[in-house]
Every structure is written in C-alpha cells, then in structure tokens.
Design a protein around this nucleic acid. Structure first.
Lengths: 340, 340
DNA sequence: CTGATAAGCCGAACCGGTTAAGTAACGACG
DNA sequence: CGTCGTTACTTAACCGGTTCGGCTTATCAG
C-alpha cells in the first residue's frame, strides 16, 4: 500500500503536479473547477502532504524545540514542566506545528542540542526555560541565529525576546504578607542560586526584608523534596527560630509542612508557610498552603505565541505575562507571641 | 549565511556528491584517503545532514510519536507522565531519535493525530499510553499500519505488542498486606473505570477481597486530587467505617491523607493508607505513605526499546516490565481494635 | 480582424540528501 | 595479450513536495 502522493492525484485528475500543488495550497493559477476536482480527489484518497518533502522545499519545519536540562527523575517530581508543555502544545496544535521535546542531563548537552538542531535545520525556533545568570545559551543561540524566546526576566535575557512573570513583585507581596501578620524572623528555602529566577527572588527577598526590618535567612537547595525537608530542619534548628518560611516551589513546601508536623509544631499557630508555584498540592494538604499562584499553562501558551509572532516578523521584545498572585490559605497566621 | 550542504563539501574536496555521501555514511565505494579528506572538510564546515532531506530519501523519520489525551491541567498534576517521557527520551537521545509529543483533549483527537501522522509520514512509530478496555485506538493503528507499542496489560492489547506491569499481582500484594495487618473492612479510591489499568485493578481487588473475606468497596474518580478527597470523605462516612483505604495514585492518596487528618482521625492508628505510583510525594508526607512503587522512568525507557526493536524487525510480543513493589511505610498499621 | 493581456496549465528545476547504474583505471590471471 | 574482477569514483534518478518560466487558449480593447 504505497503512500498517496501529489503525483498520483495529478494522474487521476489528468493535470500536472504543479497544478495540483496550486490547487491544494489555495493559490492562484488554477480554475475553480479544477481546484474543486483536485480537492475532491485529494480528500477521497485521504492525501496529506509529506512532511519531509514540504520541509525540504519550504525550508521551514513547522516545529519548535524545547530542551529540558533536568534529570527525568526531577522532571517527574516537578509538576511545573508538564503544565508548561501542555500550554505550549495547546497553541501549537491549532497551528499544526509540532514540538520537539528533548530531555538532557545538563547545560552542555543542551547547548549541543541547539547546535545540532541548527545544523540539521531541525526546528524553526526554540523556547528556552530555566534562564540562568549570565546564561551561556544566549550567546550560542545568537551565533547560531536560532530564533528563540526566553522564559525569564528581561534582566537576564540580555536583549533577547523574553516572557516573564514579575517574581520580584510576588516576593515582595509575600514578605509584606508575613510582616503584616507580625512575623519578625523569617527564612526562605530557595532553589539553586544559578537559576536566574531564584537570583531575582534572592534580591527581592533581601530588599524587602531590609525594608521591613525582618531577620531573614536564605537556604539554597536543588528544588527537590529531600533538600526541601533538610533545609526546613536546618531552618527550625536556628535560634531565634523563624516563625515563617517561604518556599521556592510547592514540592518543598509540602515536604516542609511534613517536617514541621513531625516535630510536633503546629501550622499555622507556630509556623507560617508560604509556597511558590501553587498547584493542587497546596490545596490538598492539611492545613492548606498559602501560595504564590500563577497560570503555568497560560504561561507556556503565551511564550509559544510570542515565538510564532517572532517568526512572523514581529520585533523582538520582552513581555510581562503576569505577576504571581498571593493566595492566602490556612497556613498563614500571626506568630505565636505576636502582639506580645 | 547559507546552510552547508553535501554539495559544497563535494566542491571543496573535488569529488562528486555521491562520493561524499558514501564517505560520510561509512559505506564502501571510496578510498580511505578520500574518506578522511571528506570527513575532515565536513567537520571543519560543521556539516550536519539536513533532517528533512534525509527523511525524504530514507523514508524514515527517526521520530517516535506520543500522544497524551489529558488536559494540560491534569498533566501538570500527575507527576507520572513527565517521568515516563523522561525515560522515553533517555533512550531516544542515544539513538539520535526524537520525540514528537502531542497533548490533545480526548480520544477522538488522539485518533485524528494518528491518522494525520500516518498520512504525513510524520513518525516511524508511536507509543500508546492510558490503554482502555476495548481500546478504539488498536483497530485504527492496525488499519493505518502504524507501528506501535502499547503501554498496558496484554489482556487489553488484543495481540499488539505491549509492555506492562503486573497491576493485578501488585493489587493482590496490597490486599494481602492490609488483611495480614488484621483489617476486615477496606475501601478503594480508584481511577476512571474506562482505563484498562483501572479495570485490571478492579478485577484483582474484587478477587483478592473475596478470597480474604474482606468487606470491600470501590469508588471511581478522575484521578484528580479533588475527587480523591471527595471520595475519601464518602468512604469515611460509611458504616462500618473502613479501616484501610487503597488509592490508585499518589496524588489522591495525599489528598486523602489530608482529609483524614482534617477529620481528626489518626494515621495509621485509625486508618491505614496505601498509595499507588510511589513518588517523592509519598515520602514527604507525615506520616509517610505505604505505596506500590514502580520505576516509571525505566518503564518509559523499556517501552521505547521495544518500539526500536519492533522497527528493527523483532517479533511483536508482550513483555512484562515489572511488578510494582509494595513499600511499607508509616501509614500502615493494624486496625484500631485488631486482636479484639 | 489584429494585437495585447491574462488566465490556466505544463514541464522542469529545485530543496539536500541516498543509491542504483555506469565507467575508467588497474592488477591478476590464463 | 585479452579478459575478468575489483576499486574508486561519476552520473543521474529518486524521495514528494514547491515554484518559476513559458506555452496555449480565451478575452477584450482598438
């Protein structure tokens, strides 16, 4: 059962290949009668353009690339990415674009993938996540001339087009919240410092803590539940003990919650917890977790739209998607001896 | 800056295109001296084969397809898929294959995607997940002649190649465990009944409960945290109240844990909980959750290997990957009045 | 009635690889 | 010395689309 080609349609319609191509692509050059006949035959034979052939002549792959430089294990623990990918997909699907997803071990492998994709003409553009401070991917993508939209703060994007959420504003809101509850000693369980977003939060956290005259510490982790739990134990061993902890993701916050409970401390009576990356996790714990919520699916969709626009000739620019919203839940309360 | 092609290399080396192709593909037909020269020039010019061109002549895309028929929201909540995709990727990467991932709304859209991929010659084969009872995708894939490996029990695969984990054995182990602790009234918070894997577990649960003379009920959900919590509330409202609950995924188990705690019942003193799909979630709660653990990343890798073998000409067959292992943790204990 | 214009279609080149068929040079062998 | 076989290439067709130049024919203005 050979594949149905444009040539076969041309034979059946008694016209040339070229005419069929014009007809199928809704371009002038054929009569309406012929066009209708061609479309009918094509539909009957269930013709669809061979992707490789089209790519070869059009020099356009209709594919975007996304590289995730995390271990498969980490990815499976972080609900974030799957939602992001889902958002990307939702936009690509309606443009009949597709997504080339690659999971690699580290940043070097990610760079190698970009080089390969560029040389192979594998993708039309890429979406870059997990932006770093002085990110080495930026100069590489520039050199390769690979169109890209970065996911992260303009301060990290070095002039490349990017989409960002205002993490600094969100962090400020979180600290205003705990300070207004009366907390004076707080801690933060953060992600890896090399991640640009974590760096942004680091800055905002320090600035807000100073402004509010809070005693504040930061503990960096690898975002995993294990290190989130460990960091929480460290935090609670310090004197004076913090009465509020801000986490950089939901997984660590839930892990922290369990640690606090295992130590027979009560939430929120003894300790207030604030999570980042709101997800069902934050709503199913007991008590539920106050969290900085943002729409990850929509974020992925927005980034994809920007990349499409960029390829369509739009000016490269940075675009603020949103500011995470602080959702106050049961894990927030004044500290034990507030007003004391 | 035009792309470097084989023609350009041929020109520089003073040989024909064909000779360059032979040299680059390590095929006989060129002298060692020429081959070395060609390889050197190709390396200098950083040549990489244009993917579309190779696909067109080789009639092989070096791409596998994976369709996920879930909402982006659901996907972001289920850690399962990202781990699976990571496992698939780990195998594909070393073969320089790539993955076409598509997220769609429902089964019909999934079928449409397969039809499209087959017509476009978009992928060499597909990995099919979330196998259903009397799955409509099986006849479609057969008709299309699209090579596929199904992820699920041979009883559901209708003779197509599949990779499975022995869910029935795992369920039996879970019930043996709770029965041996002395529980007599148990409940199960299950996934959607149309999923084949859930159906398999339904059967095994009923059989084991009858054999062990347990009073057992099953509550079907959509796998979400919300419905997991709701089902748990229902379960706990029944008289006589079950003393052990088995969940079909980790997310619902964690949600259930919170519900139980919110009702001021103690785990494991009052209620024993068993989760499926062990993940960090099960280890970070307080108390930690007994769970049926299996290696999702390895599962994805195994499935991918099977698909590669299938395309290499191996006989289609079903292959048992593993039986989920029951990891007993803090959420397991005898019922309140055991030995009574 | 003639010449210009355009619509409709054909043939062929092209994208960048792979590969079958053909050819020239050379050594071995009867 | 002629023949066969091998090696090392070249040529050209091919994959399945897109696209350009040019050829027919019909249309219409002059």
């Amino acid at each position: 059962m050979p594949h149905v080609t444009i040539k076969e349609i041309a034979r059946r319609c008694g016209v040339s290949q070229g005419a069929v191509s014009y007809a199928l692509n809704n371009r002038p050059g054929v009569s309406e009668a012929t066009r209708a006949r061609v479309l009918k035959v094509a539909a009957e034979m269930q013709w669809a353009p061979n992707r490789a052939a089209r790519q070869l002549s059009a020099a356009c792959t209709e594919t975007f690339g996304l590289v995730l430089a995390r271990s498969a294990q980490t990815l499976s623990e972080e609900p974030y990415f799957m939602g992001f990918v889902g958002g990307v997909e939702s936009v690509l699907a309606e443009k009949s674009y597709s997504l080339a997803l690659q999971v690699v071990a580290d940043l070097d492998a990610e760079l190698a993938t970009y080089r390969k994709w560029a040389a192979e003409r594998r993708v039309d553009g890429v979406i870059v996540v997990d932006l770093r401070v002085a990110d080495p991917r930026i100069p590489v993508l520039r050199t390769l001339g690979l169109p890209a939209v970065l996911v992260g703060d303009p301060a990290l994007a070095d002039g490349m087009p990017c989409v960002w959420t205002d993490a600094a504003a969100a962090m400020t809101a979180a600290l205003d919240h705990v300070a207004s509850l009366g907390h004076r000693v707080i801690a933060r369980v953060a992600g890896p410092p090399e991640f640009g977003d974590v760096w942004i939060r680091d800055q905002a956290y320090d600035v807000a803590a100073r402004r509010l005259a809070l005693t504040a510490s930061t503990h960096h982790t690898d975002y995993s539940a294990t290190q989130g739990a460990d960091a929480t134990r460290e935090v609670l061993a310090v004197t004076p003990r913090p009465t509020a902890i801000v986490y950089d993701n939901d997984l660590m916050a839930v892990a922290g919650l369990a640690v606090v409970q295992a130590l027979d401390l009560r939430i929120p009576d003894d300790i207030t917890l604030v999570a980042w990356d709101d997800s069902p996790l934050c709503r199913i714990t007991h008590p539920t977790l106050t969290a900085l919520s943002h729409n990850v699916v929509g974020y992925g969709a927005e980034v994809t739209h920007r990349l499409l626009n960029l390829l369509a000739g739009a000016q490269p620019q940075s675009h603020l998607y949103s500011t995470p919203l602080l959702l106050i839940r049961e894990s927030s309360a004044p500290p034990p001896r507030a007003n004391g």
